[in-house]
Design a protein around this nucleic acid. Structure first.
Length: 737
DNA sequence: AGCACGCCGACT
DNA sequence: GTCGGCGTGCTC
């Protein structure tokens, strides 16, 4: 096929290839291959699109593709000197595109996101010792250089050599002139050193060793398998899957560890370093462009052996991937809900299947769908039942707020305050968890009863006292905090109702004025980098009391944290999300699991008005099995699959009453809000024809309130919203493999 | 996704 | 009289 020229009408036409371009068009475009250029599917090229040049991916020839008007045909501008995107990755791009109803070019764009990496990294100048040629005059400085290179006869950089030998660079220059060194150009240094799999084999307990063996075996078979490691916090999941990573590396393969962005901390990287003597390459959103470029290139070349990354790392062009690990498998952060809507956990399973390689899903609180897959035998299952070493499970108790109410104007029960006080007296740390940003979730006027509401979504506006703003957490609307009530004009009679983390700080400082109190919230200035620094500082003991939203729940280990208080455990249980119990259980389990890694006596205190609720009962008793059984059972009783897909179809611009009626029926029929897709009028029929959806419904968002807000906004926006409708697909990977 | 073209409101 | 809003359409 390559190099094939067709005769047509006596004219010789050059080779034409399909190329995926980063445009929302349904398929690849055709380009002419210039004389002398050699491109095969997977090659990364530069092509003209209208007035600009864009990166493109040479696609597999498809006989069904219609011929393009030869007049339109333009030549490929350039073929990069870059490893091609392999066939598995190309099928993966197609797969993700079809599944998420995204144009394939936009999925390809996620793979080709680092244009600077398409050209080879420049080689670096170095000096190769020529040991046989000794200079005539051997000065003391020259002798030091010789002693060094006799032990290390490889090539050196000039400054590296001068530094290591303790001489100035002019000594080296002299030796170069004398012929002792030959200047050479070397490949640039690896972005991370190679991991050493034999470096420190961990001592594993019985069930850990068994689990590690299971995973090693899976890696050894060299074919697709999915294994769920279900192990409580501190049970050594990480150590166990590190053994799978080691096994993949020993086979000469690369490994990918996916983590929720927030869990990519120095702590994790250090644990990896302890085991392998080197850090993994990182991949996440706030990397320096230069580093991003190097990592991408070296992953493609196979020089980087292990990547630890956030969800987008799934689209790195590994040369020879041998294992994928998804830590915190249940985490919502794996869902991307912009541009290309995908769940990295699910797409990772697809990637593993297409590449015929093993995947490991790990969580202390697996998602229902993964549990069901494990129980049905579609996933292998590994249980790690107990904490490792002396580390005890934290002692969890509920605080019945009806019996131990907070002081007037406060939100912390005396029982919790006392526990916090004792912890800091002992020089330990306490964490107060409240999953609510801002100062207060509702503000009202004490004179006229006016409540501050979002003009777009009708949700309550949340006061952010620190920023002096009233914010809508649904749509991002923000306004200044007014001095007077906008309805009746009365000054100074606005009342904040309910607690947010900012308000908790006030209460804590009042009770513990001398403690070092830190508040962490996702809207903190400074972004992810600052956050990582703060979390690492806390882990080192540089705070006494930490007040945080759910970002403190994820993947951090605070060895001195011996008291964890959940301030309002009932948040989220009543928001109408059919997954509310599962979510709350996962969140509270993760939060309370922050305590007690060191084996100190540690306590989790859960403030609730419903201590008898199954979520609280499961947390306190530690009986996770019963909880999962109950959740799965509930769904079965409701006649629903434990997971599944729904499509929602909103046709904006139709008769409003009709659309509303439709939306109502959809909403009523939607059992699980987060498995619902929003399809634009263009895509939806196609998806429905393909039989991709169980129900002809749709909605968008993770919570009922989001969905309602979304439907309202679509309805009120009318035809304008047509083009903005997006697809969200949340699927169980097993349903299509 | 960009970027151009194209048709209706407030300004130097 | 123009600058500028974003609706529509096109890119091999």
């Amino acid at each position: 096929m390559v190099g094939d020229s067709k005769k047509s009408g006596g004219m010789t036409t050059g080779q034409v290839v399909p190329v995926l371009v980063p445009l929302p068009v349904p398929g690849p475009y055709s380009y002419a291959v210039p004389e002398g250029m050699d491109v095969t599917p997977g090659a990364i090229v530069q092509v003209p699109v209208g007035p600009r040049q864009v990166p493109g991916l040479v696609w597999d020839a498809d006989d069904t593709a219609g011929a393009v008007d030869p007049v339109k045909l333009r030549p490929i501008t350039q073929a990069f000197d870059c490893p091609p995107i392999d066939a598995t990755m190309r099928r993966f791009i197609d797969w993700v595109a079809a599944w998420t109803l995204t144009p394939p070019g936009l999925v390809a764009r996620m793979v080709l996101r680092v244009p600077a990496a398409f050209d080879p990294e420049p080689r670096v100048p170095a000096l190769q010792p020529m040991l046989e040629t000794k200079p005539e005059r051997l000065t003391p400085a020259r002798r030091r250089v010789f002693e060094l290179i006799e032990d290390n006869p490889g090539a050196w950089t000039k400054s590296g050599l001068a530094h290591a030998a303790g001489v100035s660079t002019s000594v080296i220059d002299g030796l170069v002139k004398a012929g002792t060194f030959k200047p050479v150009m070397l490949p640039p240094p690896a972005v991370v050193p190679d991991p050493d799999t034999g470096r420190k084999r961990p001592e594993l307990s019985g069930d850990q060793a068994e689990a590690a063996e299971t995973l090693r075996h899976a890696v050894g078979t060299d074919c697709y398998s999915a294994t769920l490691i279900d192990g409580v916090t501190g049970s050594g999941k990480t150590e166990v899957y590190f053994e799978a990573v080691a096994a993949a590396l020993d086979k000469g393969k690369q490994a990918l560890i996916l983590l929720p962005e927030i869990a990519l901390t120095a702590t994790f990287l250090e644990r990896f370093h302890d085991r392998f003597g080197a850090r993994p390459a990182e991949w996440h959103s706030d990397m320096a462009p230069k580093m991003r470029e190097k990592v991408w290139r070296q992953v493609a070349e196979g020089r980087v052996r292990v990547v630890a990354g956030a969800r987008s790392a799934l689209f790195l062009p590994f040369r020879d991937l041998g294992l994928i690990v998804i830590d915190e498998e249940h985490d919502q952060a794996y869902k991307q809900d912009e541009r290309v809507f995908y769940n990295a956990r699910d797409m990772a399973v697809v990637r593993a299947h297409l590449g015929d390689l093993p995947i490991v899903l790990a969580s202390a609180t697996p998602s229902i769908e993964s549990r069901v897959n494990a129980e049905a035998g579609r996933y292998g299952a590994v249980r790690l039942a107990s904490r490792f070493g002396e580390a005890a499970m934290p002692d969890l108790r509920t605080i019945d707020m009806r019996k131990h109410p907070p002081a007037r104007g406060g939100f912390l029960s005396p029982v919790l305050l006392e526990a916090v006080g004792r912890a800091i007296e002992r020089g330990e740390q306490a964490l107060l968890f409240l999953n609510r940003r801002g100062y207060a979730p509702l503000t009202l006027c004490r004179v006229c009863g006016h409540r501050f509401q979002c003009p777009n979504c009708s949700a309550w506006l949340v006061e952010h006292r620190f920023r002096q703003q009233m914010q809508c957490h649904h749509c991002g609307h923000a306004e200044k905090v007014p001095e007077a009530c906008p309805q009746c004009g009365t000054l100074d009679h606005l009342a904040a109702c309910g607690p947010g983390v900012e308000r908790l700080v006030e209460e804590v400082v009042q009770h513990f004025p001398d403690a070092r109190t830190v508040m962490l919230s996702s809207d903190m200035p400074g972004g992810a980098k600052r956050l990582r620094l703060e979390l690492d500082a806390i882990a080192k003991g540089e705070a006494d009391i930490v007040i945080g939203t759910q970002l403190v729940a994820k993947g951090h280990h605070f060895p001195k944290m011996t008291v964890v208080g959940v301030v309002d455990a009932d948040i989220g249980l009543t928001n109408g999300d059919p997954r509310a119990a599962e979510r709350t259980f996962q969140l509270l389990h993760q939060v309370t699991g922050r305590a007690g890694r060191t084996g100190e006596a540690s306590h989790g205190l859960i403030q609730t008005y419903q201590p008898e609720h199954p979520v609280m009962a499961a947390l306190v008793s530690g009986d996770r099995e019963r909880f999962y059984e109950r959740e799965i059972g509930e769904r079965q009783r409701a006649g629903l699959p434990p997971f599944g897909r729904l499509a929602a179809l909103i046709i904006s611009g139709e008769d409003k009453a009709e659309t509303e009626k439709y939306a109502r029926s959809l909403r009523a029929a939607a059992p699980r809000s987060d498995d619902i897709d929003v399809l634009g009028p263009a895509e939806a029929p196609l998806a429905l024809i393909r039989g991709r959806y169980r129900y002809r419904l749709l909605i968008h968002g993770d919570r009922k309130s989001d969905i309602q807000a979304y439907i309202r906004s679509v309805l009120s926006a009318g035809p304008k919203a047509r083009g903005s409708l997006r697809v969200q697909v949340d699927v169980d990977p097993q349903s299509f493999l």
